[in-house]
Amino acid sequence: MPVYSYKCRKCEHKFEKEMTISQKEENEVINCPECKSDNIFQTFDRVGLLGGSKNSSCSGSCPADRSCCD
Rank of each mutant, 00 (worst) to 15 (best):
V3E: 15
V3Q: 13
Y4T: 04
S5D: 13
K7S: 08
K10M: 05
E12M: 06
F15C: 06
F15L: 06
K17C: 06
K17L: 14
E18L: 04
E18H: 02
M19Q: 15
M19E: 13
T20P: 05
I21Y: 10
I21C: 00
Q23F: 01
Q23D: 15
K24C: 00
K24M: 13
E26S: 15
V29P: 03
I30Y: 03
I30T: 05
P33V: 09
E34P: 01
E34Y: 14
E34Q: 13
C35M: 10
D38H: 13
N39M: 06
I40L: 02
I40G: 02
F41N: 04
F41A: 09
F41M: 06
F41E: 15
Q42G: 08
F44R: 08
F44M: 07
D45H: 11
R46E: 12
V47Y: 09
L50D: 07
L50M: 10
G51K: 09
G52W: 05
S53C: 01
S53E: 08
S53I: 05
K54H: 07
S59H: 10
G60E: 12
G60Y: 07
G60C: 02
G60W: 03
S61L: 14
C62R: 06
C62H: 10
C62W: 02
S67D: 09
C68F: 13
C69L: 09
C69V: 02
C69P: 03
